[in-house]
Every structure is written in C-alpha cells, then in structure tokens.
Design a protein around this nucleic acid. Structure first.
Length: 598
DNA sequence: ATTAGGG
DNA sequence: CCCTAAT
C-alpha cells in the first residue's frame, strides 16, 4: 500500500511513471483491498478520459513485465491475488490509500492518471500546471463544489484528500462525503497497519518521504508507522475548513465531518497522542492554533524534532510554530520522564485534574509543599518572570539576631496570639483560585517553628548564623492557603524597627517609604516600603484611637507589643504634621503641640 | 517603580 | 500582608 503512495507521488513529481506504476500495482494488488480506482488519461485540455480497454491491457502488460524487477515487499501475507472490485476489472486499479477519500463511483473524482502513452514530460508539465491552477481554486474557495481531478506536485496527498469530501460532482458536498467517509476509514486503517507492520524501517522512511516529501531520520518503526498512518487518517478527517480543536476534541466548523470520523479515527488519534491527556490550557492553545492539524498530527510533527513542516503537507497553509509550552510538554516526557519531575504531571498519576473555580476550569496539579499535598494551578515550570521578591527573606536571622541584641526588650516584641490569629485569618482569607475561604479562627493552623530553616533564605550580608533564631516567634508555619500560595512570613515589628520607621518619617517625610526603606531599613531586608507604609498606618491609627482616651481601658490588647509612648508621641506628631487632624474644633498644625501627656 | 488605600 | 488603582 505504501509503496503505492510513494510511487504515486513520484509519478506526479517526476513523471517516473511507468515503473512506479508497476510497483504501485503490484503492491496494491497484494493488499487485496476492494476499493478500486479507474484509470484515466489526461486529455489535452486537462480533462480526464477514462482509459480504454486497449489502454488497460497495455498497462497490464507493462506492469507484468516490470513486476519482476520490482522489489518484493517482505510480506508473505500480502500475496493475494489481485481481485478487483465488481466493476470491470481491467479498468480499475486499487489504491487503498485513497479509499474513503475519493468516491470511486463518482466519475468526476478520478484521481488516477494512467496513460503511459500520453503522459510525456511535456504533458506532465501541462498537467501539473493545470492542477496547480485548480489547486488554487479550492484553496481559495471553501465551497469546493468543483470536482477535484487529481493532485499536483504542490498538493500533497493530504491536501488532496482534505478537499476530497467536497469534490463530489454529484450532490451536496456533504452527504456523499460523509457516508463514504464514515464507512471507509476503518478498513483503511487496518490495511494501513498491516502494510506498515511489514515494512522495514527503511521502507517506512521511504514511505514517509513519499508521503510528506521530506526525509526523516527517525529510526523508530513505531513512530514512522504512526506518523504515516495518522497522517493519512488525519488528513482525511480533518477538513481544511473551519475546524478548531478544543480540548483535544474536534469541534466547530465541520462538526458533521468530525463526527463522522470521531468513532475510530479521532479517538485513536487521541489515544495515540499520549493517553488521555487532560485539559491543558496552554496545550490546548497550541493545538487550536495548529490550524488544520489534528492533535495527532501536531503531536507527531513535533515529535519528529526540528524538522520543519512548512510547505509540506499543506503547501498553502501556514503552520504556526509550536508554543514553547508545547515544546516543553513534548520534549520532556519523551526523554526522561522518570526524573523526579513530579512537576510534570502525568496523566496516569492522576495528579492533574481540572477543577472549576469561580466559573472557570482550572487545571491543577498536586504538589507537596510544607509536607502536605496541595493543589496548585498547573503552569509551566519555566520561570517566566522574576520570582516574587518577598520570598527572599534575606537576612532574616541575621538582622533578626542583631536587631534583637540591640533591642533588650525583645521579649515584648513577640507576637501575641491575637496577632497570630489576625495573621492567620488574613492568610486563610487570601484570595485563592478556589474562591473565598472561610475565615476560621486559624488557631490550629499555625504553629511556631523556631528552628525552621527557610531555604529561601540566603543572606547577602552573611552575618553570623549563630543568631538566636530561637526567640523567633514570628516564624509561623508557612501559612498555606488553598491556592497553595505561601504568604510572606509575618514579622512582628520590633521596637527598633518602629523607631527606625519613625525616624525615617521624620527625616524624609510621610510617604517617602522607598527612601526610608532604602536608608533606614537597608538591613531589614524583609521590610518593604509597603510594609513601612502599612506599619505607619497602623501606628498612626493606634495613636489616634487608643492612646488618647481608652488609654488603659480594661481589655487592653494583651499581647500587643508595647510601643514606648515616646515613640507613639512622635508618631502622632508626625502624623498630624502630615495630615492635620481635627481634634474637636481645633486643628493641630505644626508646632510641637505635644504639651502634656502621651 | 512608587504610593495610597482597601481588604 | 496582599492586592489594586492611580501616579
């Protein structure tokens, strides 16, 4: 069968017609496939004229004569006699690779040209030109009512077949094509398998070349077979018209057509691709952009490496470069899947799954983080942008330690349980892909881990690591939200920090947090300008609310770090300076109006 | 990139 | 602390 394909193409391309024809016939004979094609010759005007009986006899003779010279396919089974379809045996050639693509019964759909007498080189050229012009016709026009006579050089088998279903001269472009198409593929595929199975790698490569017009260095028999087989199936099932692939399913456009084939071909195609690949957004994108290609073919193409397909099967179609994402998908698993890349979800692990969240379907993967398995949105593991800054808790210990040392009252700086809860709440409240999370008083969620070693931690100012991270109450078990996003460690503000903050504010003014951060907090890597701002906000609020009146009101926040009042005074002062606060009727502006208390 | 504010 | 909008 594939010898046929090859020869067929050669014939078209080089007019090396006679001998290939014979091969063609011999091999096709062996398949014993009942589909037959009429022989025709090309008339001067390009029309096809059914071969006469004499011509057929002539051909037969030629074939028989050359048969001996032909290499015999290594298939003992494929030696059945040539038993033509019910039609006039002498007028038909088998060409099973076309079955289901062309309607043998449709007079206008002949695709075989077989007239040694007429097919001279000049004729061939004219013929080709004619074809090319015709090809343009259907390439530019979707409504291909015009019967397709034959393929041309530029028109690969695929393309010819692509349009085949629409080339029925007779009736609607749909009905006949569908019926034919739906009934044939199975046979074709089977036949294809049989033939391919018995071909050597070399033969397969040849076949490949014949079919796709390029060399392949692939040594994998299996791959070659797939490639060839799927190429044929695909091209026959994937119309060139509006077709989109969504989630590995053919949808849209020629729904009817795809439906017609979905049973065998598409399913198989999908199976081949790589075992029920779950939805992969990016991948999906890649596929759908692979306009005109079925998932399978796309897959195989890329499997073949860097061989470019431009202008091959689809001479008139542009083929989009595969997505980076897609390439990753393809290349990785093929090489060494075993590498503990739990990152790369594999379907069989069931580690991936699509979850719907907030109306959208999100693909997630399981990932172990902090000892527990969580689901995170599935994305490529190639970092596309710089990492979050906050993950760089640089110098946490160091600054912490020296800071602590410098601050005798460190014990007061510890977080209060209330603050914890506060923090946790915030954590659990973090927006996640799975929607809002109930704010549970997350007491059970976190536990202080004193000796946790943060791996993100790599200090620039490598101070001593002897720092007592023991007092580090701030180190809370990395809060994990359902979205798997770890929140920045909560670091309680120490008095020194506050002091620095205040100092900075006085120096540079409120709002100059970047500056302050740069100057006064250069050693506190984990404090961002925003942090400063936030803290300032808190301080200010604290000053103005709690301080004046309920100074020591009963349920005083029992863990709140006691900020030295003098600092609070400063804060208030500065805050007022920044934005005058109306106290009663009096507007406190400048001047150290800090007469008294506080 | 910074800031301001809301959550 | 996070996130966003506005600068």
């Amino acid at each position: 069968m594939f010898g046929t394909v090859e020869d067929y193409e050669e014939m078209l391309q080089h007019s090396a017609f006679l001998e290939s024809r014979s091969r063609s016939l011999s091999s096709t004979n062996q398949t014993g496939n009942p589909v037959a094609y009429k022989l025709v010759r090309v008339a001067g005007d390009g029309r096809l004229v059914p071969a006469t009986d004499e011509e057929m006899l002539e051909v037969k003779e030629l074939l028989e004569k050359n048969e001996n010279d032909m290499p015999v396919l290594p298939d003992p089974i494929q030696t059945e006699e040539y038993i033509p379809d019910e039609g006039s045996p002498s007028q038909f050639l088998q060409l099973d690779c076309f079955e289901g693509l062309y309607e043998p019964e449709t007079a206008e759909a002949y695709t075989e040209i077989f007239d040694p007498g007429l097919f001279q080189s000049e004729t061939a050229e004219a013929y080709t030109e004619n074809l090319n012009s015709r090809l343009e016709e259907f390439q530019s026009e979707a409504l291909l009512r015009e019967p397709v006579r034959f393929p041309s050089n530029g028109c690969s088998m695929n393309q010819c077949r692509d349009v085949a279903p629409y080339s029925n001269a007779t009736g609607s472009p749909k009905e006949p094509a569908l019926s034919t198409a739906a009934s044939k593929p199975e046979v074709s595929r089977v036949a294809g398998e049989i033939c391919l199975d018995n071909l050597s790698i070399k033969s397969l490569q040849d076949t490949f070349r014949a079919k796709f017009g390029r060399e392949t260095t692939c040594k994998s028999k299996q791959w070659l077979k797939r490639r060839i087989t799927m190429g044929m199936i695909n091209s026959s099932i994937v119309p060139t018209t509006s077709l989109t692939i969504y989630d590995n399913k053919l949808v849209g456009g020629s729904q009817d057509t795809s439906d017609a084939f979905s049973n065998d071909t598409v399913d198989e195609a999908r199976a081949m691709e790589s075992k029920d690949t779950p939805s992969r957004p990016d991948c999906l994108k890649g596929h759908s952009n692979d306009f005109g290609r079925s998932p399978v073919e796309t897959f195989v193409d890329h499997y073949s490496g860097n061989e470019d397909f431009e202008g091959e099967d689809r001479s008139a179609k542009r083929v989009r470069k595969p997505t980076r994402r897609y390439i990753e998908e393809i290349s990785k698993p093929s090489e060494k899947q075993q590498s503990d890349e739990s990152m790369i979800p594999s379907k069989d692990q069931g580690s991936i799954e699509a979850v719907s969240s907030g109306g959208r379907v999100v693909v997630t993967r399981m990932v172990s983080l902090a000892g527990s398995r969580i689901q995170v949105p599935y994305v490529s593991h190639v970092r596309r942008s710089r990492p979050r800054e906050n993950i760089m808790a640089l110098g946490e210990f160091h600054s912490k330690s020296w800071e602590v040392k410098a601050t005798p009252d460190k014990s007061n700086l510890n977080l209060s349980p209330s603050q914890w809860n506060n923090d946790v709440n915030r954590v659990s409240g973090v927006k996640s892909a799975s929607g809002p999370v109930k704010k549970e008083s997350g007491k059970g969620h976190l536990k202080p881990i004193s000796n946790e070693v943060d791996q993100d931690y790599m200090d620039s100012e490598n101070l001593d690591s002897s720092g007592e991270s023991s007092d580090d109450n701030n180190r809370v078990d990395l809060p994990i939200t359902q979205s798997g996003i770890r929140r920045k460690h909560h670091r309680a503000w120490t008095v020194t920090e506050v002091e620095k903050l205040v100092e900075g504010v006085t120096k540079y003014g409120v709002g100059k947090w970047s500056e302050i951060k740069k100057v006064s907090f250069s050693s506190f890597v984990y404090r961002t300008p925003v942090d400063l701002k936030d803290k300032w906000r808190n301080l200010r609020r604290a000053c103005f609310t709690q301080t004046p009146s309920n100074r020591m009101g009963g349920p005083n926040k029992q863990g709140s770090m006691a900020i030295p009042t003098h600092i609070m005074l400063q804060v208030r002062e500065l805050a007022q300076k920044q934005s005058p606060v109306r106290k009663g009727s009096r507007v406190v502006v400048k001047g150290s109006s800090r007469n008294g208390f506080l």
